[in-house]
């Protein structure tokens, strides 16, 4: 009986093999995952084509496209041209997002808490351990800070969000640069680990007096409170969409470098300091599947800006999209080809 069921299952599986929709698979960054899910869902509705995106972290995106296990990888850590040549990958940006420092302190609302950039580093290094520490209190005279231990929540997987966040911290704190450094996965001196932006959000919700860092879409969707932090020049800046856009304006893309660019700490009085583009990685030898992938992103560039804005991302400007389309053409992977 069981065998018969199993055999039927196999038979069905082989039978339906021929009735398949066009299908591509991607994996990687959790930073843009809410948007890619949305795009893929709407793309499927519109065209019947399936894009299976799995959020496993940027490290996973780089690894799995590098090993050619998925059709495209996604990473918010851009790879340098040399590395791309070595791994035989193409790279282009898909959307811009922002990393916000989120906290769960009962009684303290969104953007109310001000954190100096170097204090953020100290908190995530475990040097500032209580919420009413002098360093925090002096910037927040109007808040009643609780004498509670800070629970740091960081990523346990290889993460582009962590890369950009640690890049930022390394530039604002010498201690951080010397003791922790920059990377997708770090040796954290304190806190608990969670998988993905999703995991951090899940734990932050459940853990009072905790602090974490997530892409803005996760903050927006879960109505977290995020800290007001400092621009490159030390001015207070709220974690607000207009300030992300102000920073994103400074982006300058170079297709010859495969768009390699880190957007953190841009100049300007309103520029939120931790803004990052998220990138798509394609295997150079897979021309045919690459065209299917670029077709998806071409569609998303045309039809997906509204989704992006609704979720809290910053769509790429038209000029950048045109630049990316030219890049596809140059490498013979544009969808119309």
């Amino acid at each position: 009986m069981v065998k018969r069921v199993a055999l039927t299952a196999i038979a069905t599986a082989t039978f339906t093999l021929s009735l398949q929709a066009e299908r591509i698979s991607g994996a990687g960054a959790s930073f843009p995952a809410p948007l890619y899910y949305d795009w893929a869902y709407d793309y499927h509705k519109a065209t019947g084509k399936e894009v299976n995106y799995q959020s496993i972290g940027s490290g996973g995106g780089i690894k799995q496209v590098g090993s050619r296990i998925v059709d495209f990888g996604a990473s918010d850590k851009p790879l340098k041209p040399k590395k791309l040549d070595k791994k035989r990958l193409y790279q282009f940006p898909a959307v811009i997002g922002s990393i916000v420092v989120v906290y769960n302190i009962p009684g303290i609302g969104d953007a109310e808490l001000r954190l100096e950039n170097k204090d953020i580093a100290d908190i995530f290094m475990g040097k500032i351990r209580y919420w009413d520490d002098k360093a925090i209190a002096q910037d927040n005279p109007h808040l009643k800070l609780p004498h509670e231990k800070i629970t740091v929540i960081h990523r346990s997987d290889g993460s582009g969000t962590t890369f950009n966040f640690s890049y930022f911290l390394s530039n604002v704190s010498e201690d951080w640069r010397n003791e922790i450094g920059v990377g997708k996965a770090l040796s954290w001196p304190t806190g608990i680990g969670a998988k993905g932006n999703e995991g951090i959000s899940n734990l932050l919700k459940q853990t009072p007096y905790s602090i974490g860092y997530v892409e803005y879409a996760y903050k927006k969707r879960n109505s977290f409170s995020a800290a007001t932090i400092q621009t490159k020049n030390g001015k207070w800046v709220k974690p607000a969409e207009e300030n992300f856009i102000a920073a994103a304006k400074y982006a300058s893309w170079d297709p010859n470098k495969h768009f390699y660019q880190i957007l953190a700490l841009q100049p300007g009085d309103n520029s939120y300091p931790i803004v990052a583009a998220t990138f798509i990685l394609l295997p150079r030898e897979k021309n045919e599947t690459n065209k299917k992938v670029t077709a998806f992103f071409d569609w998303a560039f045309k039809n997906g800006d509204e989704s992006a804005q609704r979720l809290g991302y910053i769509p790429l400007p038209q000029s950048t999209k045109d630049m990316i389309r030219a890049y596809w053409k140059k490498h013979n992977i544009d969808p119309s080809n």
Partner: peptide, 23 residues
């Protein structure tokens, strides 16, 4: 205190070990 174990490490990091030595 938080900790990790071998199976937990594998579950968290296996799909994303992007360097050969990490893997």
């Amino acid at each position: 205190d938080p900790a990790t174990s071998i199976p937990v490490t594998l579950a968290n990091e296996f799909t994303e070990a992007d360097s050969d030595l990490y893997y």
